[in-house]
Nucleic acid binder design. Structure first.
Lengths: 233, 233
DNA sequence: AATGTCTTTATGTGCGCACATAATAATCTG
DNA sequence: CAGATTATTATGTGCGCACATAAAGACATT
């Protein structure tokens, strides 16, 4: 029985994957420790560590100090979604991107908005509604509130040519954010803007971004029917 | 001007993040190379490498050999979704999980199904429809096709107590998969099962998993109105 | 039996070095 | 001067070692 040497961490990872997949190491089972695997694979422990760490990050292994490494019993599938600027998303589909500003105003937001954005109830925010188009067809409506206390430069922006979606990417850094996906029925207003029947099922992305403890912006994107968000597992 | 030493890769990462965020290193700009940063931070190059590699993985930096490292101009937000077994998802919300098998049959699937699963048009597959409940309320309908050529053990499973969702996790490993999220209107059948009005907007997850080049299973999950898929950025 | 302390062990990470690799820049050549 | 060749350079990764850290298990104490 020979032991082919595994020179790089990728090949070590592949071999570990193979064993998990072939049920040589069944779900929940403790696998040999790094030092032993290093000897078996004929490489340094750091190489094994790199391979196993990477697999742990993707959720296939559970690692704990002293306790060792075990194959995840419930390999939680981690799907990584790339949320790009809408213009890029459209252009990547080979379509021509279009943009229309619907309304732009400074107003006191409804309570739920100031609540999630943690702004004072009476504080005015910049409110922008706009339509994104792909090949002249409605692609998505954007309904956004911008915290001008955090992004004062936004007050001077007309958002008539460049979407807030894109402008903020460049000018308003954020430290973290929450994002939620859901399905909603088109109301009168949104159905009109998108040119779809009332009560159509729309894919919704709600996002709030933060600069440390201050909210930067809150946006709801409603996509025209047929929209799919895809990724790999 | 002192240079506080950064002893570990996390603190190096934090400092780099700070500089990006403070626009000391604006989007698109080339940052100093690893060796120089290592000197500046008073640590080994491998430590800097670890920090920068991690930031590149999360999409904040673009790295190319020889070309150097630059701050991502369009920091594509990468949202990582954890797709867990439905029972766990329900129980994590503090609700009581329930399960009901609706139908279970062996049948020739419609052409679109055999097409995406790359099975022969006349091949019979196992078809399972089931309902997942949270606190006795409909939570999601599962409509699944299982490739029994790849997972023969599934033929012997009744799926009356344990959902296919969960059983497959344990018994059918996969190498990769595609997943798509969308919004659909409830048709007659689904509306009935979920106990919601016709044309309700439902959140849909379509997933196909593969064992190398053979499809393992194709599933559509339709979630009751109100469902949100959340994550952090 | 319950509690607290110590030892052991597996992972986590840092360092300094080496060489591999990709891509640019510089140089040579027809 | 265009095109091919070679040098240079920044990242990518491997190795062997060291020590840090968390946590399980053994042991002792009450």
């Amino acid at each position: 029985m020979n032991t082919p040497t595994f020179r790089n961490w990728q090949s070590v990872q592949d071999e570990v994957l193979r064993r998990i997949h072939a049920r040589e190491w069944p779900p929940g089972e403790l696998i040999p420790n790094e030092a032993d695997l290093a000897i078996e694979f004929g490489c340094a422990r750091s190489t094994v560590n790199r391979a196993l760490r990477s697999l742990a990050e993707s959720g296939l292994l559970d690692r704990k100090r002293k306790a060792g490494t075990r194959v995840a019993a419930q390999p939680v599938a981690k799907a990584t979604l790339d949320i790009a600027v809408i213009r890029h998303e459209v252009e990547e589909h080979g379509a021509t991107y279009g943009y229309q500003l619907i309304t732009r105003s400074v107003a006191v937001p409804p309570a739920p908005v100031s609540g999630t954005m943690k702004t004072k109830a009476q504080d005015k925010l910049l409110h922008v509604r706009a339509l994104h188009l792909a090949d002249d067809a409605a692609y998505a409506v954007e309904d956004r509130w911008i915290n001008t206390a955090v992004v004062p430069a936004a007050v001077a922006e007309p958002f008539d040519r460049l979407s807030a979606n894109e402008w903020l990417m460049q000018h308003a850094p954020y430290t973290h954010g929450d994002i939620a996906f859901s399905a909603v029925q088109a109301d009168q207003q949104d159905a009109e803007v998108l040119g779809v029947p009332l009560l159509s099922a729309l894919f919704a992305i709600d996002r709030v971004t933060w600069d440390n403890d201050a909210s930067v912006t809150k946006v709801r994107l409603l996509f025209a029917p047929g929209y799919k968000l895809r990724t790999q597992l």
